[in-house]
């Protein structure tokens, strides 16, 4: 397999995704298949080809510097599970 358990565990940590030990083998196998499939790109001759990040050849439009938003934090925080004193709560952050 192209990706072993350790590779997948590293990817899981980077993407902050828990995979159960039971899922691990299946995930490694399928990821390996996918990586193997996309590997065929490497055979393509692309010397001198510009990478295409975007389907349209356009420039960024810009917005005038104006404050247009108003305070709706109470409404927005209705979707949050834990809020106290207007703050979103998360497990302790360590610097």
């Amino acid at each position: 397999m192209l990706l072993n358990r350790e590779d997948v565990e590293k990817l899981c940590l980077l993407s902050r995704l828990e995979i159960t030990p039971e899922e691990m083998e299946d995930v490694s196998a399928k990821l390996s298949d996918i990586v193997n499939m996309v590997k065929q790109l490497q055979a393509a001759e692309t010397t001198g080809v510009l990478p295409m990040a975007h389907p349209l050849d356009q420039a960024q439009r810009m917005r005038e510097d104006k404050a247009t938003e108003t305070d709706h934090h109470e409404k927005y925080q209705q979707n949050a599970s834990l809020v106290e004193r207007d703050l979103y709560l998360v497990p302790k952050v360590i610097d």
């Binding site: 990817l11 993407s15 902050r16 995704l17 828990e18 996918i34 990586v35 998360v90 497990p91």
Partner: peptide, 26 residues
């Protein structure tokens, strides 16, 4: 904190979505 992210996302996403996130990360 790390576990919070991993479990929240691990529980919240289905297997195809996880597969694509991992592929993209790779």
């Amino acid at each position: 904190l790390t576990e919070f992210y991993m479990k929240t996302r691990g529980e919240g996403f289905g297997s195809e979505v996880k597969r694509r996130i991992l592929t993209g990360t790779y």
